[in-house]
Amino acid sequence: MILLAFLLQTIRIAIPYLLAAAGGVMSERVGVIALGLEGMMLGGAFGAVLGSYYGGSAWIGLVCAVAAGLFVASLLALCTLRFRADQVVVGIAINLLVIGATRFFLRLAFDSASNSPRVDGFGGEGSGLGVMASFSNPLVLLGLLSLPALWWLLWRTPFGLRARAVGEKPEAAATLGVNVGALRLRGVLLCGVLASLGGAYLALDQHQFTDSMTAGRGFIALAAVIFGRWMPLRVAAACLFFAAAETLQIQLQGIQLVPSQFVELIPYVLTIVALAGVVGKSVPPAALGKVE
């Protein structure tokens, strides 16, 4: 029973990571740095609550979340792909923009500076009904399947082959008739959709939007992408591992083997270690961040 509870909570924490990290893999595989994940998630969370509250259904919330994610992703694509602005700078600015914009419109939409009123969500979360209740939320299944599906998309379809070629050697892909710009745009937009669904899960699971509620989860997802070496299944394992560490920390709160702050640092420290190549080096797609 304890094990089941541990597993369920791990999955619950992992879903936003899995969805956002799937977006991150997609974006970085086509050569666009996924620094805007945090902003896309937060936009998705805000859209989900806005849609659920005013539309009266979590499904409308999902539609609004995806619309918000697509909007943020389009803005990022416009700046980096059309105008070739620096991807690092744009990614960071996008995050600042969404944090500011969601706070700004929070007062207009819900007359509050810090949080929205309660929304219903999909129901069933956190109840004692066990596995089935959690799966009544379609995002749980979607989250669990997203990275395996992305693996299939990237390694078993013509689209995937072209996408990876664009991220590794765009000149070669272009020579073979691949439309590099269009493919990158699709990759970034798909990233926006996936990340916003991650944010939507977070908001609907907590039944409200709170100021800056993603709280760095986009960067944890990015950490998982790097730690998983841009390979979808490894990235999924990294997300689950990060989530399991968090769950362990929550459940062992009373015991205090290590200060809780240090457990939260696991994803960040592991990413730095992975990049430094102490245990097997993480090498990004060759054309990552270069649009010319």
Binding site: I33, L35, V88, G216, F219, L222, A223, I226, P259, Q261, F262, E264, L265, Y268, V269, T271, I272, L275, A276, G277, K281, P284
Partner: peptide, 30 residues
């Protein structure tokens, strides 16, 4: 890390922000 191992300074500095702030907060709070 950049000079010795070619690690992206963008990612390392972002991750290090979280690490540094959490460690300082821990030192101060406890």
């Amino acid at each position: 890390l950049r000079a010795r191992f070619g690690a992206s300074e963008v990612i390392v500095t972002i991750m290090l922000n979280f690490v540094l702030l959490a460690m300082l907060n821990y030192a101060v709070a406890s």
